[in-house]
Write a protein that binds this DNA or RNA. Structure first.
Length: 522
RNA sequence: GGCCCGUUGGAGAAACGGUUAACUCAUCGCCCUCUCAAGGCGACAUUCACGGGUUCGAAUCCCGUACGGGUCACCA
């Protein structure tokens, strides 16, 4: 590996699907590795069989892939430092444990949950530091004979680390994001191997990240409090210390209080939510990048067309406290990304989304893909494109009227003509327009033609004229255009009307007007 | 409660002791406009949680207080 190359990893536990916060952490970890031509790998932390959900490892990998965060090494694509699943690394942990036992760095503990509870209760009553340490660590004092006997009797046991720490001493942590932080030394005899022979997180982290050559341990700040344990473990095992990077956690405002995004309470805590809604991948990633390094936004303004992965992240530009999750900003960024996509890519992405999440959308796209492209391309291919869509699921509700079957349902649910106008007046206008839409002209000519028609019917062609002298007119050109829109599209709002009419074509315009007219006639 | 971390506008934030406290989103106004979506222009922190101190000078350094967050398992 090149000089300065960083090795990072993503180490999820298989307890469900990809968490939005995990995507953030893995995205940033991935970028740090790639920026330095290093390695990013994934290790499944499945040491808690109670919580394990089968198959979620693959699911997570799949979703990371969708976001372009692809591990160089993982269970399905192993490198030379595997296995990449903790439950398959048992022998490694056991070998290290054996050595620790021999060196007196660890010892078996036979205390039951009840005994542990009693200790905790006593500590609480006497306002002592809770935990298993020093005089409370009674299994420390077991003789070899006692240990052998208990094991022979089949008593269940765990292996604890024998801490040499002193709470009056300080240890120093250098965190790449937060700088130097001092903690009191660890004094807890933490469990390193559970009674099921599987390691705890603390132990697995130290052993795995050492043997798997992680240079930068990237994780959420909820791990900071256990750093003294890890520091002591690294020292006891004489392993080189990696660089720690404790990321801020994404928060959410709940009842005026900040709290971590919670999988139970917040739908947006799962990336599935954004996938189902059809947020563009690049928009979502871009949002996460702004959370990672806020100068990303300035870079984006300078480099509007660059790939987001051309941006170089830095540790010291990272915020220290958890950002509030801002859906408005995601919407805005996504809108922007979608607007600047060309019609082919947009259509491709929309179809891919639709095939998985929206049968109806897939149908209209597949029915005539060029027709679909022409619709979504209205006012797209220009300096300042329209920004209609913030996610793929918005498409149907915006283009529906361009499809006859959806137009029909809009039509059936009622046409919202301005009630100021008499039905027969509307009929006259529509019928006249049917025979003289001016579609052979260019946009300017078409508009001039419409103006003329409106003027003949005593609509003001300039809003100002109408304001000045409302009695002289029946309405404004806007009102006139609205009549045509409702009459032809069954909607008050559409993108550029000229383009719409061109795409619809003379025949369908006539059909639709006829339909509307017969409805108005009763 | 102990131990850590943090606190700049509604949100994300810049500024790393020295002019009017960047920028993005949101909000509000005006303009443009066939509707909508945009776009253009402008407004929005006399002030950086609060109180002291250091300094010619502090959002920036120090101390204290308050508030918010994290963590104290045979869960990760």
């Amino acid at each position: 590996m090149p000089d300065g190359a960083i090795v990072t990893r993503f180490a999820p536990s298989p307890t469900g699907f990809l968490h939005t916060g995990s995507l953030f952490t893995s995205l940033v970890s991935y970028r740090f590795a790639k920026q330095t031509n290093g390695v990013f790998f994934m290790r499944l932390e499945d040491t808690d069989q109670k919580r394990e959900i089968k198959g979620s490892g693959d699911k997570v990998l799949e979703q990371l892939h969708i976001f372009g965060v692809v591990p160089d090494e993982s269970d399905i694509n192993p490198g030379k430092y595997g296995p990449y699943v903790q439950s398959e690394r048992k022998e490694i942990y056991h070998a290290v444990i054996k050595e620790m036992l021999e060196k007196g760095l660890a010892y078996p503990c036979f205390c039951t949950h009840e005994e542990l509870d009693d200790i905790r209760k006593f500590q609480e009553e006497n306002k002592l530091l809770p935990g298993y340490y020093k005089e409370f660590a009674k299994c420390r004092r077991l003789t070899d004979g006692e240990v052998i006997e208990k094991i022979r009797n089949g008593e269940s046991y765990v292996i604890r680390f024998k801490s040499q720490g002193n709470e009056d001493n300080k240890v120093d942590l250098f965190d790449a994001i937060r700088g130097h932080i001092q903690f009191p030394e660890n004094i807890q005899d933490v469990v390193i191997m559970k009674s099921d022979q599987l390691p705890t997180y603390h132990f697995a982290h130290v052993v795995d990240d050492h043997f798997m050559r992680t240079t930068h341990v990237t994780r959420g700040e909820e791990w900071m409090a256990s750093v003294p344990i890890h520091l002591e473990l690294f020292k006891a095992l004489d392993f080189e210390l990696p660089t720690y990077c404790h990321f801020p956690v994404i928060m959410k405002l709940d009842d005026g209080k900040r709290r971590k995004l919670s999988k139970r309470k917040d739908a947006e805590a799962s990336v599935d939510y954004f996938l189902e809604k059809g947020y563009p991948i690049e928009g979502f990633l871009e949002y996460l990048m702004t959370l990672a390094n806020s100068n990303f936004e300035e870079w984006r303004i300078q480099n509007p067309n660059s790939d987001i992965f051309d941006f170089t992240l830095s540790f010291d530009k990272m915020s220290l406290d958890g950002a509030l999750f801002d859906i408005e900003k995601i919407n805005s960024i996504s809108k922007e990304r979608l607007a600047y996509m060309n019609k082919d890519i947009f259509t491709y992405n929309a179809l891919e989304y639709a095939e998985q999440y929206s049968q109806e959308l897939a149908e209209i796209i597949n029915k005539d893909i060029d027709y679909f492209k022409s619709i979504i391309n209205i006012e797209r291919d220009q300096e300042k494109p329209r920004k209609d869509y913030e996610k793929y699921s918005d498409i149907l509700g915006i283009v529906d009227f361009m499809y006859d079957e959806y137009y029909q349902t809009l039509f059936n649910s009622g046409l919202e003509f301005n009630e100021r106008y008499d039905k027969m007046f509307l009929v006259d206008i529509l019928e006249e327009y049917k025979n003289n839409a001016g579609l052979d002209l260019d946009q300017e000519g078409w508009f001039a033609n419409m103006k003329q028609l409106a003027e003949n019917r005593r609509f003001a062609t300039r809003g100002k004229d109408f304001k000045k002298n409302p009695e002289a007119y029946v309405g404004t050109i806007s009102d006139y255009a609205e009549i045509l829109r409702v009459g032809i599209c069954a909607k008050k709002n559409t993108p550029n009307f000229y383009e719409i009419l061109k795409i619809l074509g003379k025949e369908r315009i006539e059909q639709r007007i006829e339909k509307t007219v017969s409805l108005l006639r009763g």
